[in-house]
């Protein structure tokens, strides 16, 4: 059993929960950028949490099914079409042998997740099927999908069409969001005015937005003057090359902040001034170019409460989809 890729879409990759534990040698966690939506897709088709899905960016692929299956599409508002007929998002539907799944144009968000019962079965690399293209690892030959690719699908027994994620548990896709951050890391290098600018500006996402990072435009941040420490480099935004947290926000040259995501470069020589809290990383993954955001500062307690809220929402999702 498997599927044939007729058209690859734009930057479609195989992803799962990710590949933790190898960041010390520069291998980032990878995995679906919107973990909540990819989990929802797996639950809808009766898969384990760890089953691999397809992550589609902006433009959906066209996929030919060589055997019957149950499929679901979640995440971005990317309307699925089965043999040209509309199918709902956030709801599982039956697919027959020979059917072709394609997509209409994106209506909101950035990344849609396709799950099929049994999961996409590319070989595991360091415990994960996730694609990490910079390292040419995982997924289909370590790259985005290409026309003609074949992907095996696991055993599909036990899946039922017609399972639904209720409206209240779906991800909304407004064009403007608040993204919660904790200030820190090298934020002491900003002047008082630089810090105000960072938190006060409405930042617009540029087209430089991929699984590695999201680059925004909006203002220039002012740094404190200093004598460069040995090995740091002369620009005020340089540091001795250091690890980059997933979700950290670096500001090379004081302009165009970059939020690193799950395919992050693991370290480098630019100041980071804040980090997106864990609970909001899924939302960063759903930002499309020209969407705007504001960084809202929260403390550790608030970030942990947000994480617990997200865990509770996931439990509600499991219960709702199972019933």
């Amino acid at each position: 059993m498997g599927v044939r890729v007729v058209k690859p879409g734009m930057a479609t990759t195989v992803q799962d929960l990710g590949r933790p534990g190898y960041y010390r040698v520069g291998i980032p966690p990878s995995g679906a950028l919107d973990q909540y939506s990819s989990l929802a897709a797996n639950l809808l088709v009766g898969n384990d949490d760890a089953a691999a899905v397809l992550e589609c960016t902006y433009l959906g692929p066209q996929i030919h099914f060589e055997a019957p299956a149950v499929a679901a599409v979640t995440g971005a508002d990317l309307p699925p079409l089965l043999n040209g007929q509309a199918r709902p998002t956030w709801e599982s539907f039956a697919v027959a042998e020979g059917d072709v799944l394609s997509f209409d144009y994106l209506e909101g968000g950035a990344r849609a997740y396709i799950a099929v019962s049994g999961g996409f079965e590319v070989p595991r690399v360091l415990g994960s099927r996730s694609t990490y293209t910079l390292g040419q690892m995982g997924g289909v030959e370590g790259r985005v999908l290409a026309e003609g690719d074949w992907i095996d699908v696991g055993d599909t027994a036990g899946a039922t069409p017609g399972r639904v994620v209720p409206e209240s548990l779906r991800t909304a896709h407004p064009k403007h969001r608040e993204i919660r951050v904790m200030m820190g890391l090298f934020d002491h290098r900003l002047t008082r005015s630089g810090r105000r600018t960072f938190l006060g500006t409405e930042w617009r996402l540029t087209p430089v937005a991929d699984r590695t990072g999201f680059r925004y435009q909006g203002a220039e941040l002012e740094f404190e003057e200093r004598d460069p420490p040995f090995g740091a480099g002369s620009d005020p935004s340089n540091i001795v090359d250091a690890p980059y947290p997933i979700g950290s926000i670096q500001v090379p040259g004081g302009i165009e902040p970059i939020v690193l995501h799950r395919d992050a470069v693991s370290g480098g020589g630019y100041v980071m001034v804040a980090t997106v809290i864990g609970a909001d990383m899924d939302l960063v993954g759903q930002s499309a170019p020209n969407n705007t955001i504001r960084f809202a500062e929260v403390d550790l307690e608030t970030a942990l409460e947000a994480r617990r809220d997200r865990s509770r929402r996931i439990e509600q999702l499991r219960t709702a989809v199972a019933s």
């Binding site: 820190g184 001795v240 690890p243 997933i246 950290s248 997106v276 550790l300 942990l304």
Partner: peptide, 18 residues
Amino acid sequence: YSFGGDDHLFVELDKEMS
């Protein structure tokens, strides 16, 4: 010592390389 969000802890041992 500085938290990078709620799931990273970053420790700068020295500003200078040595």
